Amino acid sequence: MITTKKSAVLLSGGALAVAVLMGTAGVASAAPAGAGAAATAATTAASGWYCGYEDGTPYTDRGDRGDKVREVQCLLRDVWGFNIGRTGVDGDFGKATEDAVKAFQRSRGLAADGKVGPNTWRKLRGQ
């Protein structure tokens, strides 16, 4: 679910891409697992896109687990539309997440090493 600052219209799925292209996407809501409709919307202000799991930019790569991985998975899937595998946002940085990170990195002109460092975080956050 995506809302815009300008019109407070609820958007979903492909509507995000339209809103971004039109320059109206201002707030993203990507709910943590089990949060349901009560999830808090996150802004795309100075800190960029935020899904509600990890607001920093800690290094993460294959084998890692936890909220930093959930944040990466959520951003890849819900903001950028990448396939992160059938288990979804599970906090486990496995092969499917690594493949999605590499595809994202290639799409943004970054070295496709599958590791999420400062440059990849910046791009994931939309900065």
Rank of each mutant, 00 (worst) to 15 (best):
Val9Asp: 13
Lys5Met: 01
Leu11Lys: 06
Thr97Tyr: 06
Asp64Gly: 08
Ala46Glu: 13
Ala45Thr: 09
Leu10His: 04
Ala30Asp: 00
Thr120Trp: 07
Ala112Gln: 00
Asp90Ile: 03
Gly52Val: 10
Trp121Val: 05
Met22Phe: 01
Val72Asn: 07
Pro118Gln: 15
Trp121Glu: 04
Asp92Phe: 02
Gly109Ala: 11
Ala41Ile: 02
Val27Pro: 00
Thr97Leu: 04
Ala30Met: 07
Val72Leu: 10
Ala33Tyr: 05
Thr97Gln: 07
Gly109Trp: 12
Pro118Met: 08
Arg108Thr: 09
Leu110Gly: 12
Gly63Gln: 03
Ile84Tyr: 00
Ser29His: 08
Leu10Asn: 08
Ala41Pro: 15
Gly91Ser: 05
Gly14Thr: 13
Val101Thr: 01
Arg65Phe: 01
Ser107Val: 05
Pro32Phe: 08
Ser107Thr: 05
Val27Met: 05
Val20Pro: 00
Arg125Asn: 09
Asp90Trp: 04
Thr57Gly: 00
Val9Ala: 11
Asp61Gln: 11
Trp49His: 15
Ala31Tyr: 05
Ala39Ser: 13
Ile84Asn: 02
Pro118Gly: 12
Gly14Met: 06
Thr97Pro: 10
Asn83Asp: 15
Asp61Glu: 13
Thr40Ser: 14
Ser7Gly: 14
Val18Pro: 01
Asp61Lys: 14
Gly26Cys: 08
Ser29Gly: 11
Pro118Asn: 13
Gly23Thr: 12
Ala8Met: 03
Asp92Met: 02
Lys6Met: 05
Tyr53Leu: 02
Pro58His: 10
Arg125His: 07
Val72Pro: 12
Gly91Ala: 04
Ala19Asn: 09
Ala46Trp: 06
Leu10Val: 12
Arg62Met: 10
Pro118Glu: 14
Asp90His: 05
Cys74Tyr: 00
Thr44Ile: 12
Ser12Tyr: 10
Leu76Glu: 04
Ala45Asn: 08
Gly117Ser: 14
Arg122Asp: 14
Trp121Thr: 03
Arg86Leu: 09
Gly85Tyr: 02
Thr43Ile: 02
Val20Arg: 15
Ala28Lys: 00
Leu110Asp: 12
Glu54Ala: 14
Lys102Arg: 15
Cys74Phe: 02
Thr120Pro: 08
Pro58Phe: 08
Ala19Gln: 07
Thr87Lys: 08
Ala17Gly: 11
Phe104His: 03
Asp67Glu: 14
Thr3Arg: 08
Val89Ser: 02
Val9Tyr: 12
Gly114Pro: 02
Gly34Lys: 01
Gly109Ile: 10
Pro32Gln: 06
Gly91Glu: 04
Asp78Gly: 03
Gly114Met: 06
Thr57Arg: 13
Pro118Cys: 01
Lys5Asn: 08
Thr57Ala: 15
Val89Ile: 15
Lys5Glu: 04
Gly85Asn: 01
Glu54Lys: 11
Val27Ala: 07
Ile2Tyr: 04
